[in-house]
Simulated scan of single mutants.
Amino acid sequence: MDEVAGAIADPVRRQILVLLRDGRLSAGEVAERFAISRPAVSRHLRVLRQSGLVRAELVGRQRFYTLDPGPFTELIAWLTPFVRPSGWEHHLDALETEVYRIRRERRDAAADSRKEGTA
């Protein structure tokens, strides 16, 4: 988890992840999108690869990168308790509770009326 958190701490690496979210890109295609040197982009890609967030595939002389979101799982699990649901989520939870309560009451009333009809 620490390696993933360290990898996404840099804004350039986060932007690379956003680019790769849409699909596979070559190292050159990634580098074209930044105003930093190709060696600097290469170092960022290496950090992302070492953290497991991207995979590299060598095709001829080109290296293609793809996003691997799997390593985010542990970080997301750790972060989730810190995120409070929005007001809407609370309202929707309350609505869901009310729907289940009404269904239960109707089911119980139907069961009671069946019992009265057979008694």
Rank of each mutant, 00 (worst) to 15 (best):
A94F: 04
P69S: 06
Y100I: 14
S51Y: 01
D2Q: 10
S86L: 09
A111M: 06
D2E: 15
E29G: 08
G60C: 02
E74T: 10
H91E: 12
Y100V: 14
T73L: 08
R103A: 03
S26L: 04
V83R: 06
V30K: 00
E98M: 08
R107F: 11
G23M: 03
E57S: 05
A110Y: 13
L20I: 01
A5Y: 04
V99E: 06
L20R: 00
E96W: 14
G52I: 03
E116C: 08
V4E: 06
V59A: 07
A77N: 11
I16T: 03
D93P: 13
A7D: 02
L58N: 02
A9T: 07
A109G: 12
D22A: 03
H90I: 09
R106S: 10
S86R: 14
F72D: 05
W78E: 11
W78R: 13
T118F: 15
Q62K: 09
V54Q: 01
G60T: 07
H44W: 00
A9G: 09
V47M: 01
P85V: 03
I36K: 07
A119D: 13
H91W: 08
R43T: 04
G70P: 09
D22P: 13
G87E: 10
E32I: 07
Y100D: 14
T66Y: 05
T73I: 05
H91V: 14
R114N: 11
F72P: 04
W78F: 11
L45T: 00
A77R: 13
V83F: 11
G117D: 15
R104T: 14
T66A: 03
P69H: 03
V4L: 04
D112C: 15
E105N: 13
V12A: 02
V30L: 00
G117L: 12
V47G: 02
L19D: 09
T73Y: 00
V18A: 09
R24M: 04
H90L: 13
Y100S: 15
T73K: 08
H90W: 12
F82G: 13
R13A: 05
E89H: 06
R33N: 09
W88F: 14
L48F: 02
L75I: 04
F34R: 07
A77Y: 12
L53D: 05
R21I: 07
L53W: 01
L79H: 14
L25H: 00
R49L: 05
L19I: 12
L53S: 04
E57H: 05
P39K: 04
F34C: 09
Q50W: 05
G87K: 07
D108Y: 15
S113P: 10
A40R: 10
T80P: 11
P81I: 11
H90A: 08
V41P: 04
V12T: 06
L75R: 04
E105H: 12
L67E: 00
A56Q: 01
G70L: 01
A77M: 10
P39N: 06
L95A: 08
G52W: 00
L79Y: 15
D68R: 01
P69D: 01
